[in-house]
Amino acid sequence: MQNIPALWRDPETYLSRSAPDHPVLFFAPSVLHATAQRFLDGFSGLVTYAVKANAHPAVLSNLVAAGVNAFDVASPAEMAAVRGVSDTAVMHYNNPVRSAKEIAAGIDYGAASWSVDCASELDKLAAVPRSCEIAVRFALPVSGAAYDFGSKFGASPDDAVNLLRRVAVEGWTPSLCFHPGTQCEDADAWVEYIHAAKEIVDRAGAHIARMNVGGGFPAHRCGTAPDLEAQFAAIDAAVTHAFGATPPAILCEPGRAMVAESFTLAARIKGIRGAGETVFLNDGIYGGLVDIRDMGLPERVHVVAADGAWRKGRTVPRVVFGPTCDSLDRLPDGLPLAGDAEVGDFVLFPGLGAYSLAMTTAFNGYGVSEVVTVLDLLRDKTSNA
Rank of each mutant, 00 (worst) to 15 (best):
L289F: 08
T88A: 12
A168F: 07
N364H: 13
G205Q: 12
R203A: 15
V64G: 08
H241I: 02
A234H: 01
W172F: 09
P129C: 14
F280E: 15
T382C: 12
S175P: 04
R98M: 04
A197F: 05
G205W: 07
Y49C: 04
T35V: 02
N62W: 11
K381F: 11
G171F: 03
G276H: 06
L15Y: 10
V161T: 12
R256N: 12
S16I: 07
C325K: 14
G313K: 07
N364S: 14
K152I: 09
A168G: 00
N384P: 00
S156A: 09
F280M: 08
S151N: 01
E229A: 03
L357F: 15
P96Y: 09
Y366C: 01
D307Y: 02
P254M: 03
L176Q: 12
G67Y: 11
S156V: 00
V201P: 03
V47E: 01
D376Y: 00
D117L: 05
V73G: 10
A66S: 14
D41V: 03
L337Y: 01
V191M: 01
Y193A: 07
H195T: 02
P29Q: 06
G255P: 07
I200D: 04
N62H: 13
R210Q: 14
T48H: 08
P129N: 14
D326Y: 12
P96M: 09
F346D: 05
P29R: 05
W172Q: 05
S16T: 08
G308A: 11
L46A: 02
D41E: 14
C132G: 10
N212P: 03
T48C: 08
A189Q: 08
G274H: 01
E261V: 02
G154K: 05
A249T: 13
L331S: 13
